[in-house]
Design a protein around this nucleic acid. Structure first.
Lengths: 148, 148
DNA sequence: TCTTATTAATTGCATTTTGCAAGTAATATT
DNA sequence: AATATTACTTGCAAAATGCAATTAATAAGA
């Protein structure tokens, strides 16, 4: 069988590049790391700092500073937890939600465009394959254990 | 249909993390960016600086400095082109080749492990899907045009 | 209860990475 | 022969990174 790494290297490089490109929304300009943070805050419900930092496998100190930046940009809000005063709950501001949604839409639009080069059967197959892959990776013991 | 971005986000995050983890070979410790550079030099034949920088979509000035680092680490060699004195041809040193190969092997080992959670049919399907996806992405006009 | 861990998050460095602008040297174009 | 373009390198200055150490709050042990 062919070299699997080759296939994955190309795939992830492309997707990584996509992430890099897609982060300029009107006057707001964010990095791909920040885009990941927004995505994850949007996805989770009332997450703490730790939770998000862990989800994106980012050092907590770097994360803390990124959040400070995002707060200055008025994209993220930090609310003290009512049950544990050490904890801060992260949420998106209206503008932050808008940015996250816009990025999500443009990513999905891109993916739709990519999938438009396939027929219905291929689409289904590919989607199912990605799911399979995600499942298999989450079962794997070798790597990525902290992740998702 | 379900949210495609979600699927891809998870997949590429996992793969990105894998890339991050897999870069300590004996006494040699390299970053994932450097691993990408080694990979690409190994793949291409007599590539110039520009070629590699473009392949991994990296700013040429940052790339130039990364190469300097890799040369200091004795993983990469820079040979002046005989036909064009502005150009440098990049190649891996013996040690660089060893590092690249070791990373490649450990990545493939990881992927084998991941695929071991699937049956033969699923494996084939997934591999074929990734290929399809790569083809579709290369056809796409939206993004990633400089890439591969 | 009081003392001692443990945990969540922040700051203080020191290092590394990044990328634009400007530079040098060689080749291509006119 | 003069000019433009190309390949690559340096000079900043800003940003990102991560370890060590700090603060404040909760949990656990005596």
């Amino acid at each position: 069988m062919e070299n699997k790494r080759e296939l994955f290297q190309v795939l992830t490089r492309r997707f990584g590049l996509l992430n890099k490109n897609c982060c300029s929304i009107g006057a707001v300009d964010i990095t791909s790391v920040q885009s990941h943070i927004l995505y994850e805050i949007d996805k989770q419900t009332s997450p703490s700092m730790q939770q998000i930092a862990e989800a994106i496998a980012m050092d907590i100190t770097t994360f803390s500073r990124q959040i400070q930046t995002l707060i200055k940009m008025e994209l993220v809000k930090k609310t003290p937890s009512s049950t544990d005063k050490r904890v801060y709950i992260l949420s998106l501001t209206v503008q932050g939600k808008f940015v996250a949604t816009t990025i999500d839409e443009s990513m999905n639009a891109y993916l739709e465009e990519v999938f438009s080069h396939m027929n219905e059967f291929e689409k289904e197959t590919v989607i199912r394959s990605i799911k399979l892959l995600n499942q298999a990776m989450s079962k794997s013991s070798v790597c990525c254990t902290p992740l998702l």
